[in-house]
């Protein structure tokens, strides 16, 4: 603290050692530096939450799971790239927009672990009033937490796409085609990150118990997916192709699958790789955007009451 020596007024020498060093009893010093206000506080909360989502600034133990999941996300991409480079394949095994859909379980696990960590903790340990007794507003808190969770998911889902892209270029695949694919992939994972962040945070913000939050997030991601897949399978066997398309609206991951198939040049994981019709495609996009806006609104509503 360089200021110690420059404020002799508030400094009282208590004792002097023979070597010339002395212990100073520094009285209370007032802070007259800048106060950066709401926007800065919001940015700080964002970066703290984003770092926290990867265990940075937290205990070593809490870094294990997010880092492990990030590695698990990137590993298949690295293997595919290695295979493509060695075999000199002309295209990647998996499209950019399909990658996240294949690894949805990993993304779901990450969200289930980190969304409650991000919001349930503040509720459980009642730190929320400490935020709201400061210049930061409830809307800032929601915005920062939402943005941080979505960014953390984006990092998780975009990193393997970059691995794929780098590998594809190393394997001397067509540059334009690969760049276009990467762009579509990034848009699809950005949408996925926003939808998943909204779902995860809304569920987590409802309970101060972290365990409940984890279980509920996993349940909301997997149970509808299982149900939709099963019913789609039945519909497909019975030859009702349009039903297969519409059914995909009812679970988060099939919803995103439908959007990327309709607009981002991918194919779905639906039975027989059926894609939703054009009309259904717009409904998919609309539902996805509504899910984002709705979860954001629900979070805002949730924090209007939470507090002191």
């Amino acid at each position: 603290m360089p200021a110690d020596s420059t404020t002799p007024v508030s400094t009282t020498p208590v004792s002097a050692a023979p070597g010339g060093a002395s212990i100073h009893n520094i009285g209370y010093r007032h802070y007259d530096g800048p106060r950066l206000g709401r926007a800065y506080a919001r940015r700080s909360l964002f970066s703290q939450s984003l770092r926290g989502a990867y265990g940075l600034g937290r205990s070593a133990k809490s870094k294990v799971l997010p880092m492990l999941l990030l590695a698990v996300m990137c590993l298949p991409a690295a293997i595919m790239v290695a295979v493509a480079v060695v075999t000199k394949a002309g295209s990647l095994q998996v499209g950019y927009t399909r990658y996240a859909i294949y690894l949805q379980a990993v993304i779901g696990l990450y969200l289930a672990a980190q969304a409650p960590q991000s919001v349930s903790r503040d509720l459980r340990f009642k730190s929320v009033p400490l935020y709201f007794s400061r210049p930061i507003e409830r809307a800032d808190y929601v915005a920062a937490k939402f943005a941080a969770m979505a960014s953390a998911l984006f990092i998780l889902t975009a990193a393997p796409l970059l691995v794929l892209y780098t590998g594809a270029l190393l394997a001397k695949m067509d540059f334009l085609e690969q760049t276009k694919g990467l762009g579509q992939g990034l848009v699809s994972v950005a949408l996925l990150s926003l939808v998943f962040a909204g779902i995860g945070l809304v569920i987590s913000a409802l309970t101060p118990r972290r365990g409940f939050g984890v279980a509920a997030v996993i349940a909301v991601l997997t149970i509808p997916y299982g149900a939709v897949s099963a019913v789609q399978g039945i519909a497909s066997v019975q030859g009702s192709e349009s039903a297969v398309g519409w059914l995909g609206l009812f679970s988060p991951i099939t919803l995103l699958d439908g959007v990327q198939a309709s607009f981002l040049g991918g194919t779905t994981s639906f039975p027989d790789n059926l894609a939703p019709s054009t009309a259904a495609g717009f409904v998919y996009l609309l539902v996805a955007l509504t899910a984002i806006a709705g979860s954001y609104a629900l979070l805002t509503l949730r924090y209007r009451k939470a507090g002191l």
């Binding site: 530096g33 800048p34 106060r35 700080s44 909360l45 503040d122 340990f125 730190s127 400061r134 002191l308």
Partner: peptide, 26 residues
């Protein structure tokens, strides 16, 4: 506040630094 409001898994330093930044301190 009257009630407990401290997360148990962070140190006092980290926690208070975070709160200082929430108050707008660089």
């Amino acid at each position: 506040p009257e009630h407990d409001c401290l997360p148990p898994d962070v140190s006092a330093t980290e926690f208070v630094v975070h709160m200082a930044r929430m108050s707008g301190l660089p």
